[in-house]
Amino acid sequence: MANESLSYIFLNACLVNNFVLAYFLGICPFLGVSGKLETASRMGAAVTFVMLVSSMCAYGIHALLIAINAPFLQLISFIVVIASTVQLVEMFIKKFSPALFRALGIFLPLITTNCAILGLALFQTNKGYDFLQSLVYALGAGAGFTLALVLMAGVREKLELAEIPNVVKGTALTLMLAGILSLAFMGFAGLGG
């Protein structure tokens, strides 16, 4: 299982099994931050970065926990590492781009409870990827997340101008769009096999 090629892993994580549209991970920011194209792409970049860092940490932690024979601590240590990584990214963004910091708002600390990141750490451990494979997997997942977010934001920006009946407005409309996007991504199923 662990001898998949790097390009296969990347394509798989990015398109075939897109984290948002096939695994339903990271739906909260997907519904929340996808209103504007610019915010969406930056959010995607932030999530990708956190994914890369926490993927590396998760790999180390997993090896350590196996060595000291305490696999039941896996979940707790993963979540603590992710929370600290998010804190780090938050400080970093606050220092270098206050405008972006304001634009992301509450969704930056909420990356901590973004299932995509914890899900990534758990999946890579379950699949038994080595260090390089984990990194590529994280990169692919991040790219897939950004792609889904940007596509969604593009559609929603157009919809701002459309006339929509009151009943459909809000989350229901976004969910229907997500369903259609998800159907479209099904088309990638034969890729990278």
């Binding site: 009943v167 229901a172 969910l175």
Partner: peptide
Amino acid sequence: ILPSGGFFTLAGWLLFFNWRKE
């Protein structure tokens, strides 16, 4: 059963509740 079905079903339920509220 596919992922998109989940989105559509939830959207359907939300539509139903919105409709009742309206």
